[in-house]
């Protein structure tokens, strides 16, 4: 691990606090997210892990009354700073949601949507290429290549989620945030997504929020444990699950609460 240098740190958060109106949802979180790893956020419901995740691409901006203090940086650039453009930020930090949310358009249009609005590709053949590429990376190409013009909502739940991942990949992000991407899926579909995450690791920095500790153990290299808005412990996944330093982490992973 030591051979990986500091430049591999993709995102950092320093003393990050999040408030909903007067209520504090995130307390003083400091974390580094590495470009070549999968980072998992675990913790009981309402612990703030999803809230923190949404800060990383400023999706919290859409919620009225939400305020973020502290520094969150992407490649050393403050994402809440004046120079940062939220549209570009979200293109660089993609997001996959809890419930698959394909647009009510064709599979092709779902993928092509992002590259089009950002003007990444101008010609039809280039776009076809991006669609094919993204679907291949998301492991969906073989299943849908003959029906690209069918509605994205007609796919099965697991396929829809992989479509959403492909959609995020298509805008060539640097980080992919996944907010409990498997919680609405059956075990087989879940296994496919986990496989996919493993495939994507290294290409993109991946942050995954999950309820499922086995899943965190399976897919991630780093794990952060959140509780009551604070980040209790952060470290290598193997350490967190085998040798937690904090009592609360231990209680949680041994199933005392949560």
């Amino acid at each position: 691990m030591n051979k990986q240098d500091v430049s591999a740190v993709k995102m950092t958060a320093l003393n990050c606090n999040v408030y909903y109106n007067e209520k504090q949802a995130i307390k003083d979180v400091t974390i580094d997210i590495r470009a070549d790893e999968v980072t998992a956020f675990i913790g009981p419901s309402g612990c703030g892990k999803s809230t923190f995740l949404r800060c990383l691409n400023r999706m919290n901006d859409t919620i009225a009354g939400c305020r973020v203090t502290g520094d969150i940086k992407l490649d050393g650039e403050d994402i809440y700073g004046k120079a940062m453009d939220v549209v570009q930020l979200r293109a660089r930090v993609g997001m996959v949601f809890q419930k698959p949310n394909p647009f009510p358009k064709s599979i092709y249009e779902n993928i092509a949507y992002g590259p089009r609005i950002h003007g990444l590709i101008s010609n039809k053949t280039g776009l076809d290429e991006v669609v094919k590429n993204s679907l291949q990376k998301a492991g969906l190409w073989e299943e849908v290549k003959d029906r690209l013009n069918e509605s994205g909502t007609a796919l099965s739940g697991g396929q829809q989620q992989r479509l959403c991942i492909a959609r995020a990949i298509a805008v060539n992000p640097e980080v992919i945030l996944m907010d409990e991407p498997c919680s609405a899926l059956d075990p087989i579909a879940t296994a496919k997504i986990e496989e996919l995450i493993e495939e994507l690791r290294g290409r993109y920095a991946i942050v995954i929020v999950t309820h499922n500790m086995q899943q965190a153990a399976r897919v991630s290299q780093k794990t952060a444990f959140f509780h009551l808005g604070s980040m209790v412990e952060y470290g290598a996944t193997t350490d967190i699950f085998t040798n937690p330093r904090k009592e609360r982490t231990k209680d949680y992973i041994t199933g005392r609460y949560g």
Partner: peptide, 17 residues
């Protein structure tokens, strides 16, 4: 559904897009 809107915004679309 709100998720539709979130999905588009998360891809970096502006509100009007």
């Amino acid at each position: 559904p709100q998720s539709m809107r979130d999905g588009s915004l998360a891809l970096g679309a502006t509100p009007s897009e």
